[in-house]
Design a protein around this nucleic acid. Structure first.
Lengths: 232, 232
DNA sequence: CGCGCGCTTGACTAACTTCAAAGATGGTGG
DNA sequence: CCACCATCTTTGAAGTTAGTCAAGCGCGCG
């Protein structure tokens, strides 16, 4: 069952986890209208949703699980631009073709929407266009924050910033679930697996975090972590 | 004349360099309507247009010269997210407040537009909203390419990529003008001034580039430069 | 002409990577 | 239910790249 096609089912108008996590500032208010035209897609771990260069006929919203958006250099070096969690939109910015590969970090379900249907909706409801613009702007802000991180922060600051950002998104302030591997985190932060692991160990022995089972991380001293992150 | 206020003049409906450089894919077609509601602003080198956190009442289009959009950490480390050249829009994505400081790299002039006027125009002309979205998406793509550069490329690859990107934007294929200092370039590429300088020297002695006077760089072997950039 | 700023170059250092191997973890099949 | 195996994580030691510190060079401006 490795190379199976993506399963796709009739949409049970499912909001599931979607409404619980309004990660992006621009509210789901207007965009909720979309759910009537969506279809549910299931992915299992490491399965690709689409690749760089694929025609961007659809875009998606994460319902459950997590996915990563990445780009790869010719010799295999990979960078993960962002992790997408329930409530986040995927590929909504693509015009024509996708500019990144999107794969499942863990088993995941997404709502799939056709771009042409979106265009029609936007025509009817101009406010929707604004929500859309807001979503893309949020992504741009996130990317610019990541540029500062990759360009100017050291390994400890990168991991601290990452943990805080994930905590922010997860809702729970002091407890984060990290469904991705150390290698994924490394590829997101511009480090190596080993360095990420070492910094985790270091933060743990400093008492700043605690590593629970099942990919859970407890932030024991949020303030100290913020200091380490060199929040600007 | 160091801390002078920004000079601002009545708009002579000036297109100047603006029409010559359509850097961003989304055409100026619809956005040309904006020029009737703009005002010209002049900056001299290193003068700030606006700072992080400032209310975003206006946005701008570069007419002549160049500006940089940057963020700074508490201890002074700086990262330049992007350089903006004639034809590029500045701060168009800002909602409420600006998320970066924008300063002049060289003496520059910009066209200033009020956000509220833009909103009105978008209401009247829905197609304008699409152009707007296209502009922001282009910025997002550029930012994501820069993420890969900062996360996974080495110093030579970074500078080679930068030179090629600047050449692309400048129109002339094999000749680039670099109005910014080595330090600016370093802060854009996540390196130090010294490293940037060393790589310039290295590329020069390899015969890949030639440094002309007046901040001009000639790309002598574009192909080789592309190989060095590890284009993905 | 001289001064200041930016650029270049050199020697040394630090941070992160690479290479290697041992230690967890969790899912599967007997 | 337990043992096994693949995969992920952690840890150690050595190596590299880019950073830091310091000094000299060169161009442009007053």
């Amino acid at each position: 069952m490795l190379a199976t096609a993506i399963r796709t089912e009739a949409a049970p108008n499912s909001h599931l986890a979607a409404s619980a996590f309004a990660t992006r500032p621009a509210g789901d208010g207007d965009l909720a209208a979309l759910d009537r035209i969506g279809t549910v897609v299931s992915l299992h771990r490491d399965q690709a949703l689409f690749g760089e260069g694929d025609p961007a006929q659809y875009f998606y919203k994460v319902l459950t699980g997590a996915v990563r958006s990445c780009r790869v250099l010719a010799d295999g070096r990979r960078h993960i631009a962002e992790f997408l969690l329930p409530g986040d939109f995927v590929g909504i910015e693509a015009a024509g073709t996708h500019h990144a590969t999107v794969e499942a970090v863990s088993d995941a379900t997404l709502m799939r929407y056709s771009r042409s249907a979106l265009d029609r909706l936007v025509q009817q409801q101009p406010r929707l266009g604004k929500s859309l613009l807001g979503l893309v702007c949020s992504e741009l802000y996130a990317a610019q924050a990541q540029l500062l991180l990759l360009g100017r922060k050291n390994a400890v600051e990168r991991l601290a910033s990452f943990l805080l950002a994930m905590a922010e998104r997860s809702g729970e302030a002091d407890r984060v679930s990290l469904p991705m591997t150390r290698c994924d985190i490394a590829d997101h932060l511009g480090l190596t697996t080993e360095t990420v692991s070492r910094i985790f160990t270091q933060l743990k022995s400093q008492g700043v975090i605690r590593l629970g089972g099942g990919s859970e991380v407890e932030l024991k001293h949020r303030g100290e972590l913020e200091a380490l992150a060199e929040a600007a």
